[in-house]
Design a protein around this nucleic acid. Structure first.
Lengths: 110, 110
DNA sequence: TTTTTTGGAAACCGTTTGGTTTCATTTATA
DNA sequence: TATAAATGAAACCAAACGGTTTCCAAAAAA
């Protein structure tokens, strides 16, 4: 969990972090509020949140003794865009011509 | 790299694996052909490909002494769908009412 | 002013990750 | 048939990951 690689793809690879994203997408919560949703310890949640902040998916704002965590999920566009590059693999709208053009012709930079 | 967690999100968290996906999305290649695109060793590439097969993003077919690797990226729909859940975070089409409803009203399960 | 709440930070731990080298096996080819 | 090509498999490794417990500091509440 110690920070070295910090990109969005790696940040969302952990299911707990995706849950945290889901929580914070609905409302801002302080750290303990987030931790209350999980069985893992509060420091573990804090580390997940740090990872999310390091790739910009969460911003943190301290007020008094509380640390409010807010989702800022613009960075997920990169993920969406990347996955959508391969949309044809799960879309059935390909007709014979498209298949021919996409797969049967030799690639121009092959 | 030893296989335990096998979900698509974790499979695509590694940049090398995303590159392999890109390669195989354009044409089927045998293992050495894939490995030629990288500086890491052939066994390392083989392990990446195994991970991709274990979550169904790549299928493998042996013919003679060669192992042909083919992309089957339907599984990326899960990633696309998940990311698109948060599309409003990078889409500017929210008007004042939407912002009000989404953020300013107290959450019903708060 | 004690006491609680909130959370940062450090030290530690076992497992997973991403990589290597080496060796064996199978299939083609000279 | 001897050799080369393609790959699998095993053993190993350092670093990162995901988690813990413990302790400390600051802010709020009794």
């Amino acid at each position: 969990m110690n920070q070295v690689r910090r990109d969005v793809f790696q940040a969302i690879s952990d299911p707990t972090r995706r849950e945290i994203i889901g929580l914070l997408s609905r409302r801002t919560l302080n750290l303990n509020n987030v931790a209350d949703h999980f069985t893992i310890s509060r420091p573990a949640v804090a580390k997940h949140i740090r990872i999310l902040t390091e790739c910009g998916l969460v911003t943190v704002q301290t007020r008094g003794r509380e640390t409010f965590c807010q989702a800022d999920l613009k960075g997920l566009k990169e993920v969406s865009d990347w996955a959508n590059t391969y949309q044809k693999f799960w879309t059935d709208k390909l007709d014979a011509l498209e298949r021919f053009l996409d797969e049967d012709l030799p690639d121009e930079n092959a």
